Amino acid sequence: PDDEWKERLREAEEKNNWKLFEELARKAGVSEEKIEEWKRRWS
């Protein structure tokens, strides 16, 4: 299951679909801290 969400995150990233990325990350149990960090790195 871990690989599956990583794959989906990669797809979201490729499409630059931040909303989807964020949603998937939350569902995968990624901390808000980590998500914010990704946001900063991404923008």
Rank of each mutant, 00 (worst) to 15 (best):
P1A: 11
P1H: 11
P1G: 11
P1C: 15
P1F: 14
P1W: 14
P1M: 13
P1E: 12
P1T: 12
P1Y: 13
P1Q: 12
D2L: 10
D2T: 12
D2E: 10
D2S: 12
D2F: 13
D2Q: 09
D2N: 10
D2Y: 13
D3K: 10
D3V: 08
D3R: 09
D3M: 09
D3G: 09
D3T: 08
D3P: 10
D3H: 09
D3A: 12
E4V: 12
E4I: 13
E4T: 10
E4R: 09
E4A: 10
E4Y: 15
W5F: 06
W5A: 03
W5V: 04
W5R: 02
W5M: 06
W5S: 04
W5C: 14
W5H: 04
W5K: 03
K6E: 14
K6N: 11
K6P: 07
K6I: 14
K6D: 11
E7Y: 05
E7I: 09
E7G: 07
E7H: 09
E7V: 10
E7L: 09
E7W: 08
R8M: 14
R8F: 13
R8H: 09
R8D: 04
R8L: 15
R8I: 14
R8T: 08
R8G: 06
R8V: 13
L9R: 04
L9E: 04
L9K: 03
L9C: 15
L9V: 05
L9F: 13
L9D: 04
L9G: 03
L9I: 07
L9T: 04
R10K: 13
R10C: 15
R10S: 06
R10Y: 08
R10F: 07
R10N: 06
R10G: 05
E11H: 07
E11L: 09
E11S: 07
E11P: 03
E11Y: 05
E11Q: 09
E11K: 06
E11T: 07
A12I: 07
A12G: 03
A12P: 02
A12R: 02
A12F: 11
A12N: 04
A12Q: 04
A12Y: 10
A12M: 08
E13F: 15
E13M: 15
E13K: 15
E13R: 15
E13D: 07
E13P: 04
E13W: 15
E14F: 13
E14N: 10
E14S: 12
E14D: 08
E14A: 13
E14Y: 12
E14V: 10
K15Y: 07
K15A: 14
K15N: 14
K15S: 14
K15Q: 14
K15F: 08
K15M: 14
K15I: 08
K15H: 11
K15E: 11
N16W: 11
N16E: 06
N16H: 14
N16I: 06
N16P: 02
N16Y: 07
N16D: 08
N16G: 14
N16M: 10
N16C: 15
N16T: 04
N17P: 03
N17A: 07
N17Q: 08
N17Y: 07
N17F: 13
N17E: 07
N17M: 10
N17K: 06
N17R: 07
N17V: 06
N17L: 13
N17I: 08
W18K: 01
W18N: 00
W18H: 01
W18D: 00
W18T: 01
W18V: 02
K19V: 11
K19C: 15
K19E: 12
K19L: 09
K19H: 11
K19Y: 09
K19N: 11
K19S: 11
K19I: 09
K19G: 08
K19A: 14
K19P: 12
K19M: 09
L20D: 10
L20W: 14
L20Q: 08
L20Y: 08
L20I: 08
L20K: 06
L20F: 09
L20P: 02
L20G: 06
L20E: 13
F21V: 06
F21L: 06
F21E: 00
F21M: 04
F21Q: 01
F21N: 00
F21P: 00
F21R: 01
F21T: 01
F21D: 00
E22G: 02
E22I: 11
E22S: 05
E22L: 12
E22K: 03
E22N: 02
E22A: 08
E22Y: 13
E22H: 04
E22F: 12
E22Q: 04
E22P: 00
E23Y: 13
E23Q: 08
E23M: 10
E23H: 05
E23T: 08
E23W: 14
E23P: 00
E23A: 10
E23N: 05
E23D: 10
E23I: 09
L24Y: 11
L24P: 01
L24H: 04
L24G: 02
L24T: 06
L24E: 07
L24D: 02
L24F: 12
L24V: 08
L24S: 03
L24Q: 04
A25F: 05
A25D: 00
A25G: 01
A25K: 00
A25R: 00
A25V: 05
A25T: 01
A25W: 06
R26A: 02
R26S: 02
R26Y: 02
R26C: 05
R26T: 02
R26P: 00
R26W: 01
R26I: 05
R26V: 02
R26H: 03
R26G: 01
K27E: 11
K27R: 13
K27T: 06
K27I: 10
K27V: 06
A28Y: 12
A28E: 04
A28H: 07
A28N: 06
A28I: 07
A28P: 00
A28D: 01
A28M: 13
A28Q: 05
A28V: 05
A28W: 10
G29T: 00
G29D: 01
G29N: 03
G29Y: 01
G29P: 00
G29K: 02
V30R: 01
V30A: 04
V30H: 04
V30S: 01
V30P: 00
V30T: 02
V30Y: 15
S31G: 04
S31V: 02
E32I: 05
E32A: 09
E32F: 04
E32N: 07
E32G: 03
E32V: 05
E32D: 09
E32Y: 04
E32S: 06
E33Y: 06
E33C: 13
E33F: 05
E33P: 03
E33R: 06
E33K: 08
E33S: 10
E33W: 06
E33A: 12
K34E: 13
K34H: 06
K34I: 14
K34T: 14
K34C: 15
K34D: 13
K34M: 15
K34A: 11
K34L: 14
K34Y: 07
I35M: 03
I35P: 00
I35Y: 02
I35K: 00
I35D: 00
I35W: 02
I35N: 00
I35V: 02
I35H: 00
I35A: 00
I35C: 01
E36Q: 12
E36N: 08
E36V: 04
E36L: 12
E36T: 05
E36G: 04
E36M: 11
E36W: 08
E36S: 07
E36A: 12
E36P: 00
E37Q: 05
E37H: 03
E37S: 03
E37A: 05
E37Y: 07
E37F: 05
E37L: 03
E37I: 03
E37K: 03
E37D: 08
E37N: 03
W38R: 01
W38C: 14
W38P: 00
W38Q: 01
W38N: 01
W38A: 06
W38F: 11
W38T: 02
W38S: 01
W38K: 01
W38E: 03
W38H: 04
W38L: 08
W38V: 04
W38D: 01
K39S: 02
K39T: 02
K39C: 10
K39W: 10
K39G: 02
K39N: 02
K39F: 09
K39V: 04
K39L: 09
K39H: 09
K39A: 04
K39Q: 03
R40S: 11
R40F: 07
R40P: 01
R40V: 07
R40H: 08
R40Q: 12
R40A: 12
R40K: 12
R40M: 09
R41D: 06
R41F: 13
R41A: 13
R41G: 07
R41V: 08
R41H: 11
R41M: 14
R41E: 12
R41T: 08
R41S: 12
R41Q: 14
R41P: 01
W42T: 01
W42L: 04
W42Q: 02
W42H: 03
W42D: 01
W42G: 02
W42E: 01
W42Y: 08
W42R: 02
W42A: 02
W42S: 02
W42M: 05
S43I: 14
S43L: 15
S43Y: 14
S43H: 14
S43R: 14
S43G: 14
S43W: 15
S43M: 15
S43D: 10
S43A: 14
S43V: 11
